[in-house]
């Protein structure tokens, strides 16, 4: 994972992109997209998180598949928690 001049360029590019996305998410929140406001906000957040994970945390470029497996399993179990809980909350006949 030794750094090269290109990696420095990547870091600054990602940094600029993250700042732009931050501006974008505020901008998107201030216009009415109906039910899609939340979806857009979460999508932008996920893109930003992915950029940080891939380039700053070096998931891209690590030779190891194991790291990716850890990330995927953490997200998998997080979605299990959220998804199966929602299977209750979204289908209740009362409330």
């Amino acid at each position: 994972m030794a750094g090269h001049a290109t990696s420095l360029k990547t870091y600054f590019t990602i940094w600029i992109a993250l700042l732009i996305f931050t501006g974008l998410t505020v901008f998107a929140a201030r216009i009415d997209l109906g039910v899609y406001n939340a979806a857009v906000a979460l999508t932008i957040a996920s893109v930003k998180a992915t950029l940080v994970a891939l380039f700053f945390m070096h998931i891209r470029g690590t030779s190891e598949r194991l790291t990716k497996l850890v990330v995927v399993s953490a997200l998998f179990f997080l979605f299990l928690l959220l998804g199966l809980s929602m299977s209750d909350y979204l289908t209740r006949a009362w409330h």
């Binding site: 931050t22 929140a29 906000a41 940080v52």
Partner: peptide, 14 residues
């Protein structure tokens, strides 16, 4: 990055 939109940006346009 997740907390910011979830906590601050709810129905900001209204």
């Amino acid at each position: 990055i997740y907390l910011f939109p979830l906590l601050y940006l709810i129905d900001l346009h209204k």
